[in-house]
């Protein structure tokens, strides 16, 4: 019996979210009395692999086959399902990101395992298996009960603390058989944002709305983000106008994020915008309108012109760092 966790690496290093996932899987494995098994695809060296043990992986299955270089949903589903069956999976955990969203539903059908998407906490009970989750894009919460014997969860980024448990993991290579005919998606081109923080991974996010007035005014916002090691984001009209790329659009129909700190400059706080950012641990609002709804969602607020306030904040951060 096992709790199996799907991890991801980036240039040979695990993502922080993968350590969160392993910590989360380990906590569940302890509750149900099973082992924690991590799957690692792509080349990661032994020292890096051992880090998964630090967060509680008893066993790591490494897969290094060219067929998994790019994401083919069917080929990946087959691989994870094979491992799940071989290891007698009880709970399977994936990240709630592009990869997890693509694979978890397919695996749910393949393994006949009920799926809970975007979990932010450990199950509130294991029998019945109940998980607390957001509904109506954060305007409500509910418990989702999974009635099948096997369960699948996707875990939201930055929602579970890292817990060290210092396990020495057993590392085993897993070599699946994949024939070329099974691959149906061919990647013809990739545009990677280099050197930029990934918005959904960032712990601090600085975001601008229509109150920033024009794409020319993003300088101070970017400078503040740079100083704070933050990613930049925006409201929907800003990306619709083409002031910022679509990949920065946060909210109900854009990215859903949960950083430790979200700074909103010139954003009114429409319900659809808040749906994407309300899980942030701390929200700062900068807005000229004291009645803007963003102040109801914020922890700290400044009624003022973003063009004046942002440079002040930049100064203050520089002083803090000095």
């Amino acid at each position: 019996m096992a709790v199996i966790v799907f991890t991801e690496s980036w240039d040979g290093k695990f993502k922080k979210s993968s350590f969160e996932l392993v910590s989360y899987a380990k906590a569940m494995a302890d509750s149900v009395g099973s082992k924690t098994i991590a799957i690692s695809i792509a080349s990661v060296d032994q020292d890096e692999l051992k880090k998964l043990g630090l967060y509680g992986a008893d066993k790591i299955l490494t897969v290094s086959n060219e067929a998994f270089k790019t994401l083919d949903n069917q080929v990946y589903t087959k691989l994870i399902a094979e491992i799940a069956e071989k290891e007698d999976v009880r709970i399977l955990v994936l990240p709630h990101n592009n990869t997890g969203k693509a694979l978890a539903p397919r695996l749910s059908v393949r393994l006949k395992a009920g799926l809970v998407s975007a979990a932010v906490k450990l199950p509130s009970s294991y029998d019945p298996f109940k998980v607390y989750k957001k509904v109506f894009s954060g305007k409500g919460f509910a418990h989702q009960v999974v009635n099948t014997e096997k369960k699948i969860l996707t875990l939201s980024n930055n929602s579970f603390e890292l817990i060290e448990s210092n396990t020495i993991p057993e590392i085993e290579e897993y070599s699946p058989e994949v024939s070329a005919t099974e691959i149906s998606t061919t990647v013809v081109d990739i545009q990677k944002q280099t050197g930029k923080l990934i918005l959904t991974d960032a712990e601090i996010v600085v975001s601008g709305g229509r109150g920033m007035k024009s794409s020319d005014n993003w300088g101070p916002l970017e400078e503040l983000a740079e100083l704070l090691g933050a990613a930049t984001a925006c409201s929907r009209p800003v990306s619709d106008e083409g002031w910022r790329p679509h990949s920065e659009h946060t909210g109900q129909t854009g990215k859903i994020i949960a950083p430790n700190l979200y700074i909103a400059a010139g954003i009114s706080g429409a319900i659809q915008h808040l749906a994407g950012v309300s899980s942030s641990k701390c929200i700062v609002a900068i807005n000229t309108d004291k009645d803007a709804p963003i102040f109801e969602a914020a922890d700290y607020g400044i009624v003022g012109d973003a063009a004046k306030v942002l440079p002040e904040l930049i100064e203050a951060v520089k002083e803090m760092k000095a």
């Binding site: 994401l71 990101n97 998606t185 990647v187 013809v188 990739i190 545009q191 944002q193 990934i198």
Partner: peptide
């Protein structure tokens, strides 16, 4: 994809 876009033929 995380941190980018991929063009896929299918």
């Amino acid at each position: 994809i995380d941190g980018g876009l991929e063009q896929v033929a299918i």
